[in-house]
Simulated scan of single mutants.
Amino acid sequence: MSEGEFLHVVTRDDISDGQRTFGRTIVRGSLAILVVTVILQWLDQQGTIALGFETWRPSLYAFVLWAICLCWAQVLIHGERGKRTLFVLPAALFVVALVVFPLIFSVGIALSDWNLASPNGRQFNGVDNIVQMWSDPFYWNAMLNMVWYTLAIVVEYAIAFGLALMLNSNIRARKFFRVAFLLPLMLSPVAVSWMIGKSMLENRFGPVARLLRNLGWEQPSFFGTPEIARATIMIMDAWTYIPFMMIMILAGLQAIPKELHEAAEVDGAPAWRRFWEITFPLMLPVSITAVLIRIIFKLKLADIIINVTAGGPGGATDSVTSFIFREYRDRSNVGYGTMLAMVYLVVIVIAMTILMKVADRWMKPRY
């Protein structure tokens, strides 16, 4: 075989000791610059020294310099293996810049007393925010509300599954109904909150309230009592996101081979048995995926609550996200609000990890 017939020839890396030394030098030097810059910036922010650093851009520039030197050094030190590393390393550094650094910065804010309305500015207060959070009944009420909002996904899933079964059957105008049921998903939750919560459900001039008054309900109020207000928020949010689960389940139903149902029907199995022994088990991976994604969306529930009830009455409809938003906007309490957000993040990570492990066990085939 001639040399021209080779598509690619991998040769041994011929890297001199001088190249390796230079690679290690630029990495260590750029890292030292980054560490020194961050320390100086932090001292300037604390008022210990005055360097005139108004923003954290110097630290950002130092990080970019270190990232470039680190990528360059991979090729200088490891040769061909270092080039393969470059397919992953920039993405990892990008995640560090946009996730890890802001997270560390947020921890610093969470451990400080920082109210934008206070003339004292930002002051370190240790675990005082945690103590305040522990005795804050409104925050724990918002946490309890999130439990109820999340449990409502069971009902949403049942409705979505039923709609998907209907749209997968041979009904008339099936294509029209598929598009019609997807319309709520095309709307923004903010638009839904104003269109339904602020217009249709308005207790004085809303068309739904007028209809209920004509039917005998003298003073219809959808947001006057905690139970009704919470249920109304659940319905509005469900109306928006049930089509999302429906379309995922419908795609899974269409992927099930028709021969399975035909064979079971020939054997005399009734419709309910075909559903429980064929359809539902085969749809379990898709169903669990749809429910997990829906839980992620539900844990971010805020926009409908903020626009319709602002957490009322008396915090009865607050989600954790809407409560943290009002802590920032209404009370300008950046330090305490950040602590609440950090605790909520930890709760979400733990809860989703447990749910994904349980879901993984359910989706494993049993023989």
Rank of each mutant, 00 (worst) to 15 (best):
M1G: 12
E3F: 15
E5N: 09
V10K: 15
I15D: 02
D17R: 13
R28S: 15
L31E: 01
A32P: 15
A32C: 13
A32V: 07
I33G: 12
L43T: 01
D44M: 00
Q46I: 11
I49R: 12
L51W: 05
L51A: 08
G52P: 09
E54Q: 13
L65K: 06
L65S: 06
C71K: 07
C71H: 07
E80M: 14
L86E: 03
V88L: 00
V96N: 10
V100G: 01
V100F: 14
F105E: 14
G108R: 04
G108D: 05
D113W: 08
W114P: 08
S118I: 11
P119S: 15
N120D: 13
G121A: 02
R122T: 00
F124C: 13
N125F: 06
N125D: 09
Q132K: 15
W134R: 14
W140Q: 09
W140K: 07
A142S: 00
M143V: 15
W148A: 15
I153V: 05
V155E: 03
E156D: 11
Y157R: 05
I159N: 01
N168T: 04
P184F: 06
S188M: 07
S188I: 01
V190A: 14
A191W: 02
S193R: 05
W194S: 14
K198W: 11
M200A: 14
M200T: 07
P207G: 06
L211M: 15
L212K: 05
R213L: 01
R213M: 00
P220Q: 03
T225Q: 15
A229I: 04
R230G: 09
T232E: 00
T240Y: 12
Y241E: 15
I242H: 02
M246W: 00
I247C: 08
Q254P: 06
K258D: 11
K258M: 11
E262Q: 10
A263V: 00
E265W: 09
A269H: 05
W272D: 10
R274L: 02
W276H: 11
E277G: 14
T279G: 01
P281L: 00
M283R: 06
P285Y: 00
P285M: 04
L292F: 10
I296V: 11
K298L: 14
L299S: 04
K300N: 12
L301N: 03
L301R: 01
A302V: 14
A302P: 04
D303Y: 07
D303P: 00
I305A: 00
I305C: 03
G315M: 08
G315V: 05
V320P: 00
T321N: 02
S322C: 01
I324S: 00
F325P: 04
S332I: 14
T338E: 06
L340C: 10
A341G: 04
A341F: 01
Y344I: 03
I354C: 09
M356R: 12
W362S: 08
P365E: 05
Y367H: 13
Y367N: 12
